[in-house]
Design a protein around this nucleic acid. Sequence first.
DNA 1: GTATCAACTTACCGATCGTTCAGTAAAAGT
DNA 2: ACTTTTACTGAACGATCGGTAAGTTGATAC
Lengths: 209, 209
Amino acid sequence: MTSSAETASPGGNGRSGRAPYDLPAVLDIAVAAFNDYGYDATSMGLLAERLGTSKSAVYYHVSSKEDLLRLALERALGELEGILEQPGAQTGAADERLTFVLRSAVRVLTDELPYVTLLLRLRGNTELEREALARRRAFDNAVSALVEQARTDGTVRADVDARTTTRLLFGMINSIVEWYKPGGALSQDQLADDVITVAFDGIRVHPGD
Amino acid sequence: MTSSAETASPGGNGRSGRAPYDLPAVLDIAVAAFNDYGYDATSMGLLAERLGTSKSAVYYHVSSKEDLLRLALERALGELEGILEQPGAQTGAADERLTFVLRSAVRVLTDELPYVTLLLRLRGNTELEREALARRRAFDNAVSALVEQARTDGTVRADVDARTTTRLLFGMINSIVEWYKPGGALSQDQLADDVITVAFDGIRVHPGD
DNA sequence: GTATCAACTTACCGATCGTTCAGTAAAAGT
DNA sequence: ACTTTTACTGAACGATCGGTAAGTTGATAC
C-alpha cells in the first residue's frame, strides 16, 4: 500500500504533536492569506507564521511563492472552464444555456470561494497573471457569445449591447466573492436563484404583476 | 498674489526644461500606478520613474506613500458621500431616490475613475484602509436603506432581501471600474442608462413587451 | 544496527523596500 | 548684492523581501 496519509491522528510524526503538512493543506492556507492581505502583501514569512512553521518548511512543499499562485489559479480556472464543457452549456436555447452557465458560475464561486476570489483580484503584473487573465477573458467571451445569440433569438433585450450586458452580469456575479459567507443564512441555491431573478427580471415590481 | 502656479509653460525652473511638479500632478500619476500594479506592488522607485524624477523628489511633495493613498481615498469617498447630500437623494419616492443615487454613482465612478478604482480595490490591511472601507460600508448601508424603503412601498421586488439586492446592485455598478474606458464608444450617460435599465428591468425580453 | 528518507530547523544571502539626509542649483524676495 | 525659498539630486539607512544551504530529527527499510 502507498501509505494513505489522510489528515489522520495528530502526533503522526512525533515531532511536536502535529501531523506534517501536505501540499493541499499548505495551498489552502496560502490562498486564504493571499485573499486576506493581497498576493503581493503576503510575505512567505507571514505565510509560515500562519502555518505554524518556518519559511523554509514552506519551501519544502512548494518551489516558490509564484508556484502557490499558479496552483491556486489553475484550480479556479479549471472549474470555470469546466462549466462550458457540460451539456447544459452546449445544447438547448441560448437563453436556457445562459441561465445554466450563470447558475453554474454562482455555484463554482461559492464552492471554490477562496480560489476564485484570488483569480478575480489579479492585476496582471507577471506573465503568469496575464495568462490567467487571458483564460478568464476567454470564459467571458464565451458567455458574451451566448448573450449575443439570445439577443438574436429575441429572448434578451436588444437595447443594451451584448458586451455591456455581459460585463454587468459578471460584475453582479463576481461581486459575490466580496461578501458571500458560506454556511450563513443565505444558501448557495437561494443565492443562485436571487442572481438569476435579478439578472433576468430586475429589481422593479411591474404594475400588474 | 498667491502665485497662481498652473501647469504653465515648460522650462519654468530652467533645471532641465520641465516645469516642477505640484501635488495634484504627483497624485494623479501615483493613483494611476497604484491601479496598474496594486498599491503594495507599486514601489516609490517605480513611481519616481514614472514621474521622471528620483525617489527623494517625490518625498518633497508628499510625506509618505500612505499619504498618497489617503489623499486619493479622501477624494473618492468625498465624491460618493456627496451624492447622498443632494436633494435628489433626500426627497421624493424611495424608488426615485434610489434611481438618482445609482445614476449618480455611475457618474462619480466614470468621472473619478482612477480614484474610485483605488478605493474599490482596498483590502483593509492598514488602519487607514480600514477607515476607508468603513466609510464605503456606510454609503452602502444608506443605499440599502433606500432599497428597503422601496420594498416597503411595493416598488421593488420583495422576493429578494434588501441586503442581497443592494450587494448585487453595487456589484454591477462597481464592476464598471474594471472595464469602462472614458472617451470610448460608450458614453457616461448611455452607460448610466444601461445600468438603470438592467438593474430595474433585467436582461429578459418579456412576452408582450 | 546501520542506512535511508521525509520533514523539517537555524542561519544566512543579495535584492529591494520605504524613508531620510546632506547638499545644491535656480528663482524669488528684499 | 545678499538671503531665503523652492525643487530637487545622490547616497545611504535599517528593515524586510523571496529564496538557499547545511545540518538535525524521528520514523522506516533492510
